[in-house]
């Protein structure tokens, strides 16, 4: 790995990014707000002082590798687990007091779908609908039919869930989150187990819900998914929130790296250090370094020339969102803990 954990480019700047993204709007406009949210299991810290701020009307991507604390955070948001420390407010109401008033307005898919295997898809939805105090029993059948229609399961409605594929169960889970009109949808890995076609359908479903004004909070370990449908994103790593901002800002805040070809590497390195560039391991006569946010490449060249460094080649590489994601969460397949 080229970037050590101590040298994560965004670590240093995340407060700055955060403030411009979500600091200004009042609590009223936040669908989800957590302060210092912490959850420990025994000695293991699963969620560590997380301050989430999800603006209403956003499609908020919640990114992080497996085991980074996303699902635990979602469980706390939905009142399934109690935080060890910190506070949560959902749709403007503090939890856990506001839970019964808020949850009917929240649809959720948590850690994969779960159903009564011996019941049909339709009967499963009727059961969850019966558990919701919102929505009159006389219109239950219509609600269930509409929700099944919306996720393309109308044809399999009377089949036992036992016979459903994982993708069908996932769709049924989304249908159950859509039984009544919601203000907030919390979708934990909604495209898990779906084929590419299903993934696209979920994306377009999320977009159409967002167009209706529903706030969508969607977690994923796949950056591509978040990139394609989200307006905002937050990144979790090892239980901590390491970045949170509108997606555009996250993209723009990506620090570029410069590559310099020169016969005077020592002098160049000194110039880089002066300017605050962070050196990456070098090849023969090629130096690579990341620029701090806001620095223009021309400044670097000017400084190099002024210091008498012979510049034989100079290149600028913009960091992709994926590079940043990897930089934030660490590379490789190792589960965080």
């Amino acid at each position: 790995m080229s970037i050590g954990p101590g040298a994560r480019p965004l670590d240093a700047q995340s407060p700055e990014v955060q403030s411009s993204g979500v600091g200004s709007p009042g609590t009223q406009s936040l669908a989800i707000e957590t302060r210092g949210l912490t959850k420990t299991f025994g000695r293991q810290v699963a969620v560590d002082s997380v301050d989430l701020a999800v603006p209403r009307g956003s499609v908020f991507g919640f990114l992080g590798p497996n085991g980074s604390g996303k699902t635990t955070t979602i469980r706390i948001l939905l009142g399934l687990a109690a935080p060890t420390r910190g506070s949560v407010s959902l749709l403007g109401r503090p939890l856990p007091a506001g839970l019964s008033a808020t949850l009917p307005r929240v649809g959720a898919l948590v850690e994969g779908p779960a159903f009564y295997p011996y019941l049909s898809g339709e009967a499963n939805l009727r059961r969850f609908d019966a558990a919701n105090p919102v929505g009159h029993p006389s219109t239950r059948a219509a609600r269930v039919a509409t929700a099944l229609e919306r996720v393309g399961l109308a044809a399999a409605a009377r089949k036992r869930v036992h016979a459903y594929s994982l993708g069908m169960k996932q769709r049924l889970g989304i249908a159950s989150a859509l039984l009544v009109p919601r203000e907030l949808l919390v979708l934990d890995e909604p495209t898990n187990g779906l084929d590419p076609q299903g993934t696209r359908e979920v994306r377009s479903l999320v977009r159409s819900l967002a167009a209706e004004g529903v706030t969508v909070f969607v977690s994923s370990h796949l950056l591509a998914e978040i990139e394609q449908m989200c307006t905002h994103a937050a990144v979790m790593s090892a239980g901590r929130l390491v970045a949170q901002a509108p997606l555009e800002e996250l993209r723009a805040a990506g620090c570029a790296s410069v590559t310099l070809r020169t016969p005077d590497p020592e002098r160049a390195a000194a110039v880089f250090a002066n300017l605050g560039l962070r050196m990456l391991p070098a090849l023969d006569d090629e130096l690579t370094a990341t620029m701090p946010v806001g620095m223009e490449p021309d400044q670097v060249v000017a400084a190099l020339v002024a210091a008498g460094v012979r510049v034989r080649g100079f290149g600028v590489t913009e960091q992709s969102l994926e590079d940043r994601f990897v930089a934030l969460t660490g590379e490789g397949f190792d589960v965080a803990r």
């Binding site: 469980r75 939905l78 009142g79 399934l80 839970l99 019964s100 949850l103 009917p104 929240v106 959720a108 948590v110 850690e111 994969g112 779908p113 779960a114 159903f115 009564y116 295997p117 969850f128 609908d129 558990a131 919701n132 105090p133 159950s176």
Partner: peptide
């Protein structure tokens, strides 16, 4: 164990 408890609770059944 079936996982349906969490969906009942967020339905919310109370």
């Amino acid at each position: 164990s079936q996982g349906t408890l969490r969906y009942l609770l967020i339905a919310p059944a109370g």
